[in-house]
Design a protein around this nucleic acid. Structure first.
Length: 558
DNA sequence: ACTGTGTGCGCG
DNA sequence: AAAGCGCGCACACAGT
């Protein structure tokens, strides 16, 4: 059972779509009656709510204390279906661009500044005038035209569940102790400086750097100035990157590296960040579901996916509550195992650290070697240790390596590749095709050919990684969705008084929970991981072990 | 005063 | 030693 919601001039139309796809009754209701209507239907039949976009509808329901179990986010689903190779022959994919495509791209555009009132979201202009009932019918038709509709159907469900989760996380926020954060900053940088001033510690370091480089006017934030000053004292550097500086012997290196480190903390996660992003003890990440080509989430403002290790101390559970932090161990290689049905790799990963097993099997000499070799296989390394270890990895796990090699070949040819559930890589750009074309024409110069070859390899590395990263993102979505449903079953449907998701980071989730529920939450996470593995890979025996920690602060999770 | 690009660094 | 994937963000700087 589905109920499609549409909004025109303050009037909501709720249209029932029966299980067989037949359009049923359409009720009209006032916007103020919406919350009660949704709550009542949710309790009675738990329909799948169908709407143009989750950000437009769900915050107002959450603010009124109403959660829904399932939805279809038409805008997110539209984007997947338009591009997926599984639905390429459908009318929806073959038709011309529509307002839904405009709405899709608007979703991943940066939102202007701060939204003033968090839960008073205006209807975005981009979805006004769209017909969600017709779009939903077109999407159903596209799905049923697929050869294996189960895969794409699961992907759409998972993506939509992600949209609900992102809104719920924004609603509850991540517990954040501004006082702890301030203490971290003060210890590192000195007291908070007056407006327009730099922290005392940074000023001191800058002065020392100027003295040691004999450059009284140097601005250490200026890369060209700094590079020139380093060369003037005889340091042969090509850049001012820290890993290049680290190798040098000179009295200025230590204070310079410290300056860079503190400057980064100050500018990216300093007092200004705290003022902008933390209110009433909560940081509200602005997740962009499906914001990355591979289906990974992105963020817009606040940098929720780049929280540096040293400020994670500020993430502290409320009194009487705990944080349960879980991450999937070696997620991407394990996903590759499932994609390739590589039995040897599945055996190596069973019940233990995958990299340790690779060492035990004498494929490589040490765990760091195993890790770098595996990452190199998935990223397409061409030089260094990583590339040199590839033949040994290929001998040990021929099926897994063949899968990524094949994905790279497809990309080099300009073909598209697909994740486990059907998310499909974008085609290469017109410029890319033109370069390839030119190199194949008579009269092509060797430089044309070199350029084409190098560009083809670049795109091949992208498609090589796409199949793994996109499938891993699907596993993570399924894991989160399964976790969310099980948490709701654990303690009713309220968000604020019960265990709930507060953070997500590609292969890691965090749940804020009353202390007494922590053991159950840990079990839920493990069960959900198992369920996610089965959803993606059926009975193929690949394990997805988790590292789980129940802690008071995020900094203690690793 | 604005916008786009390059550099560097944080995360997975 | 910093190669090989995907990002966001802040700053300096050069272009308009």
């Amino acid at each position: 059972m589905h109920i499609v919601l549409d909004l025109h001039d303050g009037v909501v139309t709720a249209t029932r779509i029966e299980g067989d796809g037949a359009t049923g009754d359409a009720a009209q209701l006032d916007l103020t009656a919406l919350v009660e209507f949704v709550a009542e239907r949710e309790a009675a039949e738990r329909p799948r709510w169908v709407w143009a976009n989750t950000r437009q509808w769900y915050p107002r329901l959450l603010a009124a204390g109403v959660r829904v179990e399932r939805c279809v986010d038409l805008t997110l689903c539209h984007r997947i279906l338009r591009r997926s190779a599984l639905t390429a022959e459908s009318a929806l994919a073959r038709g011309p661009e529509s307002a839904w495509d405009v709405a899709s791209s608007a979703l991943i555009e940066p939102v202007p500044a701060q939204s003033p009132a968090l839960f008073d979201v205006e209807v975005p202009a981009t979805t006004a005038g769209l017909d969600p009932v017709r779009e939903f019918e077109a999407q159903l038709a596209a799905v049923s035209s697929a050869e294996q509709p189960g895969r794409i159907r699961l992907l759409l469900a998972a993506e939509s569940a992600g949209a609900l989760i992102a809104e719920e996380i924004r609603f509850t926020g991540l517990p954040w102790r501004a006082d702890v954060h301030d203490r971290v900053l003060t210890q590192a940088l000195g007291p908070r400086p007056a407006p327009e001033r730099h922290p005392a510690k940074l000023d001191e370091l800058a002065t020392r750097i100027r003295e040691l480089l004999d450059a009284p006017a140097l601005n250490p934030d200026s890369q060209p100035e700094l590079l020139a000053a380093l060369r003037r004292v005889g340091l042969d550097v090509a850049s001012t990157r820290k890993w290049e500086l680290r190798e040098l012997q000179h009295p200025v290196i230590a204070p310079l590296l410290e300056y860079k480190n503190l400057y980064r903390l100050y500018t990216a996660n300093g007092w200004a960040w705290l003022d902008a992003w933390v209110h009433e003890g909560r940081f509200r990440p602005d997740y962009v579901v499906g914001g990355v080509v591979t289906g990974r989430w992105a963020t817009s403002g606040g940098g929720a996916l780049q929280l540096p290790k040293n400020v994670r101390q500020a993430v502290v559970a409320d009194p009487g509550w705990k944080l349960v932090v879980a991450d999937a161990a070696q997620l991407e290689p394990r996903v590759l195992t499932g994609l390739a049905h590589d039995r040897a790799m599945a055996d190596a990963g069973r019940g233990r650290d995958l990299y340790d097993s690779i060492v035990a099997a004498q494929v490589v000499p040490s765990r760091p070697h195993a890790k770098v070799a595996m990452l190199g296989a998935m990223y397409g390394a061409t030089t260094g240790d990583s590339a040199r270890l590839m033949p040994r990895l290929r001998r040990a796990f021929p099926q897994a390596i063949a899968l990524v090699d094949h994905a790279a070949e497809e990309g080099e040819r300009g073909d598209r590749v697909m994740s486990r559930l059907g998310r499909t890589s974008p085609p290469p750009s017109a410029g890319w095709r033109a370069v390839q074309q030119r190199a194949s024409e008579p009269g092509a110069t060797s430089s044309d050919e070199r350029r084409a070859r190098s560009q083809a390899r670049d795109w091949g590395r992208f498609t090589r990684n796409f199949v793994v990263q996109a499938s891993a993102a699907e596993w993570a979505l399924c894991w989160m969705a399964e976790t969310r449903l099980r948490l709701a079953a654990l303690n009713g449907r309220s968000l604020s008084g019960a265990p709930h998701l507060v953070y997500f980071l590609h292969d890691e989730v965090m749940i804020h929970t009353p202390e007494q529920f922590a053991p159950q939450v840990e079990r839920v996470l493990h069960d959900a991981a198992r369920a996610a593995g089965e959803l993606l890979f059926g009975t193929f025996p690949v394990d997805f072990p988790l590292t789980v920690a129940t802690v008071d602060t995020y900094a203690d999770a690793k």
